[in-house]
């Protein structure tokens, strides 16, 4: 629970934002009794998206990750929906990823469009608070 430190979800979000803005592919923080590791999902590059230019100049950088967080808008128990979403999963369209149970109501958490799930930031069955990141999505 957030006392003097941020929640796990927020710390993951900060690391993910750092990762997105840097060249690193993996960030790991170890502190006391916890370890957080956030890794960049590497896209399949079987065929180069940007063909080499005939003049031999450097190939353009791949577009940066555009990560946004889907946050809880109420307090309750977080539950993953079926089929279980997984990190790295590419969503073609808007989909229910999870729900937050509050006062006996099932409040869906949707992907809000297409994208790739970078991180599932909350634990299945855990209590979540208002504003807590639940999923980090790459909309790139």
């Amino acid at each position: 629970m957030p006392h003097d430190s941020r929640s796990i979800g927020e710390r993951v979000a900060i690391l993910a934002a750092f990762l997105a803005s840097s060249d690193a592919v993996r960030v790991r923080v170890e502190r006391d009794d916890e370890e957080i590791e956030v890794a960049r999902y590497v896209r399949s590059t079987a065929t180069s998206a940007t063909p080499a230019r005939s003049d031999g100049a450097a190939v353009a950088e791949p577009p940066p990750l555009r990560v946004d967080a889907i946050k809880a808008d109420l307090v309750g128990i977080f539950r993953l929906s079926r089929p279980l979403p997984f990190e790295g999963e590419l969503l073609e369209d808007d989909r229910e990823l999870a729900f937050v149970e509050a006062l006996g109501m099932r409040n869906p958490v949707r992907s809000l469009g297409s994208g790739r799930i970078v991180t599932i930031a909350a634990e299945d069955g855990a209590a979540v608070e208002y504003g807590q990141p639940l999923f980090l999505m790459d909309r790139g």
């Binding site: 957030p2 006392h3 208002y130 504003g131």
Partner: peptide, 13 residues
């Protein structure tokens, strides 16, 4: 009050 309670939850903006 957030720091001193045993548990704390954000409930809104």
């Amino acid at each position: 009050h957030v720091r001193q309670a045993d548990e704390a939850f954000c409930v809104g903006p």
